[in-house]
Design a protein around this nucleic acid. Structure first.
Lengths: 282, 282
DNA sequence: TAATAATTGGAATTTTTATTCCATTTCCGC
DNA sequence: GCGGAAATGGAATAAAAATTCCAATTATTA
């Protein structure tokens, strides 16, 4: 590949995303060593940002001059300009959710679908990050012990929370933890719950606006002496007074839509931990 | 302040956190220009990481040599060593998933439930972050347009992917987008799909190991001329050849369990974008 | 207020780092 | 397998950056 292979300096990508796409679309046009650099660059963007030409070259098993050629083949004047893009990427990473949404709004792709994708993903990232700090390990451990001791775990959820319950049902199933999804197309939920005893346990999931049937199911189980572990979005949730253990998961919203990313991660952790606890104590 | 004011090179802080504390506890001992540098450094850590001695000095209104003196007064050999700490900070920020798991394993809470929670959440964070860079905006826009043009959107998913489909069904419902979850306790999936025409569309979701019924449903729809949008985990997924549009979502795993956090965020974005596109074009 | 020590500015120097250039190798069409 | 073009390695060179050093300034103390 010639240094001036239809590429002039003016069209060098200015931001990381377009650089990435540029590299990907030329993936097969690069000669051997340049492909090597391309792969290394996309796999180790941090290294590209911080390393020196020599250190990066060594780690990518090429010569420093190859890095310069690579940069030039994309349209940059030299390696330094290429590296600047990788540095910008780290610099621009806006820390807070608000800043990121702000950035999306001011962007060129105003009301494009891409903006929605970016916004929802930013909200999800923010939610998961919040969850990582908000949940108390002690509370989690206690809830896990309670659930691990149960004979059958009843799963209560409707509407928006239902995907989480179905995911729990699937995961518990794989872990051989007996469970019962309290939900049926036949309206036999009451009959399903009639088998519950205080030696069982329940996981109830509900977010505002709290679905009436979920509340009703949680109340029935709670009154039957079944310990209830709740996943909800506020300390004032009507689930809280019915619960022995409860967790608040605050999902960020985008344009009024709340993601489930943090809740579903939490649910998975809960299921795995219960499975582990069973394996350990049995 | 003397260059060797009770400070020797060996006790220079190795990580950003202790550097920060060191600077704060000496806040009042620094002479004028060095205080200036201290304040600038803590206020602009990114600048400290990326800038050159000259550029940082200019922005902090001091001489480059002052930066070197500042670094030495804290115990570093020179400015470069100080800067290395600021760079490490950025490098470690979204510390890679592997490192984080490593940290969890070596932690005090070995095989406690809290470690599982931390690990799963780390995996979720990593997955969502990957998704934010991996998905092409153009592909997303195209898929949205295709789905927005459909009369009915068929949703195909089984087992682990089912929660995503049920979430899509719920969200599309709220957005008044007609949809049909191809799944039934009565085994009438074929009959459900019999109504599909090329003016409809489908979303198929399947991750390795690809559930046979999902593949079969996707095949039937595809052969009926229904445009299929797939969400899967590899370019080699059997869904890909059946799809008009496809997206690869790489979920990180923890102890062999894959989260759904990124997929569910993507699904939500897709649903909202389709709703928006409809609102715009109708 | 004079003497001394600490601090600072800025140019000179050294070190590090990127880039260029050219000889050698590899690839490709014939 | 031959000839030319493209690609590569690596040393030589240029550029950039950090560091040092010393004179000038500013604080400190008697």
């Amino acid at each position: 590949m010639n240094m001036n292979n239809g590429v002039n300096t003016s069209d060098a990508p200015k931001d990381f995303h377009s650089l990435r796409e540029r590299i990907l679309e030329r993936r097969d046009l690069f000669p051997k060593r340049l492909s090597q650099v391309a792969a290394f660059a996309l796999d180790n963007p941090d290294e590209m940002a911080f390393g020196t030409a020599a250190s990066i070259a060594a780690r990518a098993h090429v010569q420093p001059s190859t890095l310069v050629r690579f940069a030039q083949s994309i349209g940059y004047a030299g390696f330094s300009d290429l590296q600047a893009v990788f540095r910008e990427r780290l610099r621009e990473r806006p820390s807070t959710y608000d800043e990121r949404l702000q950035a999306l709004r001011s962007d060129a792709h105003r009301d494009s679908s891409a903006a929605i994708l970016g916004g929802v993903i930013a909200a999800a990232q923010y939610s998961v990050e919040s969850a990582s700090t908000a949940i108390s390990s002690q509370a989690f451990e206690k809830a896990v012990k309670a659930l691990a001791a149960a004979e059958t775990i009843f799963l209560v959820a409707q509407r928006r929370s239902f995907p989480i319950a179905s995911y729990l049902a699937y995961t518990f199933g794989k872990l051989k933890v007996r469970n019962q999804l309290v939900s049926s197309p036949f309206g036999i939920e009451s009959e399903q719950m009639a088998f519950a005893t205080p030696r069982d346990a329940a996981i109830a999931i509900s977010f505002s606006p709290y679905a009436a049937p979920s509340m009703e199911h949680a109340r029935v189980l709670s009154q039957a002496g079944v310990p209830v572990v709740s996943i909800t979005d506020s300390a004032f949730s009507p689930l809280v007074p019915l619960s022995k253990h409860w967790f608040e998961i605050a999902e960020a919203d985008f344009a009024g839509f709340r993601s489930l990313s943090a809740s579903i991660a939490f649910a998975l952790a809960l299921a795995i931990a219960v499975g582990e606890e069973r394996a350990r104590t049995k």
